[in-house]
Every structure is written in structure tokens, then in C-alpha cells.
Amino acid sequence: MPAENSITTMTARRTLSQADLDVYAQLSGDHNPIHVDPAFAAHTRFGATVAHGMLLFSLVRAQLEQHYPGAAMHSQHLTFPAPAYTQQSLEISLVIQGAAAADELAIRTRITRPDGQRCLEGDCVLHLAPSPQ
């Protein structure tokens, strides 16, 4: 791995199960059958259940917390180019872009499938100083 990559990019892997999608459906209230009903999803253009977009964002958010504990999220832009399926090893990447302001950090956020397709692509800005509350 190139040295500059190891400085600016942090990656983690996660394989989602149908049970994970079911838990997220309970927490979010989003019980759309494309996420929770394998028999229904099999007959759609996706061919199987797909992860909720905001479950993917959840994986990104937890990685941000792991690397920048206590940082507040100022903003996040998200796109969902390709569906993410269960039982795939998803790569979660944080690519550091630099300081957006004195106490802010701009980070590119990505989730990539094993075939290289992007399931989530986005940019976020973190406040590194804990927010007063």
C-alpha cells in the first residue's frame, strides 16, 4: 500500500446480514419490503433485498466516530449510485480532504462493493471540537 494512502485513507469492512437490515428497519420505521422481504425482493429488478441508504450512512457515521471520537457532524452530502446487498464484504472508506476551517475537517466518504461499484459516495464536514451542550 502506498504510504500516502495510509495517511489519507482509512478503511474498514462490514458484511451486512438480513438480520442487520431487519434491526435497522425496526429502528428507522422503514419497513419497505425491498429491504426486509427476501421473497418480494427476489421479484424486483434488484433480485434480492438491498440495504437502506441510511443504514449505509450509519456504517460511515460509526467509522467517523471511531477515528474522531466526539466530533460533531456539520454536514453530509450523500449519493447512492448502486444497491448494496447482504452477504457482501463492503469496504467503508474515509478519505481525508483537509481542513475546511480551523476546527473543521472535510472527509470523502465511500462504501464500495466487492465488484468495485459504489453503494454510497459522499462528502462530510466534521467539527473536531466537541460541541458545547
Binding site: L27, S28, G29, H52, G53, R61, G70, Q76, L78
Partner: peptide, 17 residues
């Protein structure tokens, strides 16, 4: 984390719903 504010993805999930 120790803080327990509502995580941003759950807020985003309301829009998604």
C-alpha cells in the same frame, strides 16, 4: 460514545421514510 444525542443517520432515516 458516551454522548447520547440522536445520530445523524437516524434523523436522515426520517427523510428516507
Amino acid at each position: 460514545p458516551a454522548h447520547n444525542s440522536v445520530p445523524e443517520p437516524l434523523i436522515a432515516g426520517l427523510f428516507s421514510c
